[in-house]
């Protein structure tokens, strides 16, 4: 099979992502921080951070600035990573009709992460009173995001497989000579890392390790 590649010859403007839209998720997290500050005097000595399937809290953290802001910190880490991913796709993914919609989906995911983090904070500082409304809203938001993604995906043309010889185990792309940081997935829609690039290896490591560290910190903070 020949390795044939095609690209648009003329220049096209890079996708515009307004600064206000980029700052939105962090503004939501900041508003959550203000809410926490306003409620500080009324907080109990221990804050619930985990609930069993009946909705009863089964894990707590002491009321401390670090313990109380854990949901927001976790949200900030996830939003930060998603922001880095958007920048990486804008600068390091090939131009295609897929790039702009994928960036929108990642941004929508960032908003979802910020809202869920604030929801968790709300459930925590209200001693679980907001748990069920938060779960219901999070579920609805995830469904909305999936619906939005599905709508976008349906309208996209199918991408040709990039560099067929560079795929390991069918879905891991490794090509040291390819300058792209992100390449279109072999199956489905979206991007995957080009593990032939050191920056992609570092980024994927950060995506795996940073949320894990955040969860470990949350567990050990009990």
């Amino acid at each position: 099979m020949s390795d044939i590649r095609e690209a648009f010859l003329e220049s096209v403007p890079r996708e515009h992502l307004p600064l206000a839209a980029q700052l939105g998720p962090f503004a939501i997290l900041f508003a959550g921080g203000l809410w926490l500050l306003a409620s500080w005097q009324k907080l109990p000595a221990r804050l619930p951070i985990h609930w069993n399937w009946r909705g009863d809290p089964d894990s707590f953290v002491p009321r401390s600035p670090f313990g109380a802001t854990l949901p927001l910190l976790l949200g900030a880490v996830i939003c930060g990573l998603m922001l880095v991913m958007q920048a990486g796709i804008r600068r390091g993914a090939p131009r295609s009709p897929m790039r702009a919609p994928v960036l929108k989906v990642v941004l929508a995911g960032e908003y979802l992460a910020a809202l869920v983090s604030c929801g968790l904070l709300g459930a925590s500082i209200t001693a679980g009173r907001l748990l069920w409304p938060v779960l219901a809203l999070a579920f609805a938001a995830i469904l909305a995001l999936l619906g939005y993604t599905g709508k976008i995906v349906r309208g996209l043309p199918r991408q040709p497989v990039r560099n067929p010889g560079a795929w390991r185990a069918g879905f891991i792309y490794v090509d040291r000579d390819d300058p792209a940081l992100f390449v279109p997935k072999r199956f489905g829609v979206g991007y995957t890392f080009n593990f032939g690039r050191p920056a992609a290896v570092a980024l994927s490591f950060a995506f795996l390790v940073l949320p894990l560290i955040a969860v470990l910190v949350a567990i050990t903070a009990r």
Binding site: R5, A7, E10, G92, R95, N163, D175, P179, A180, V183
Partner: peptide, 13 residues
Amino acid sequence: LATVRELALDLGV
């Protein structure tokens, strides 16, 4: 035309 960087990225060269 597409910049050197853009075209190289698109073609994977």
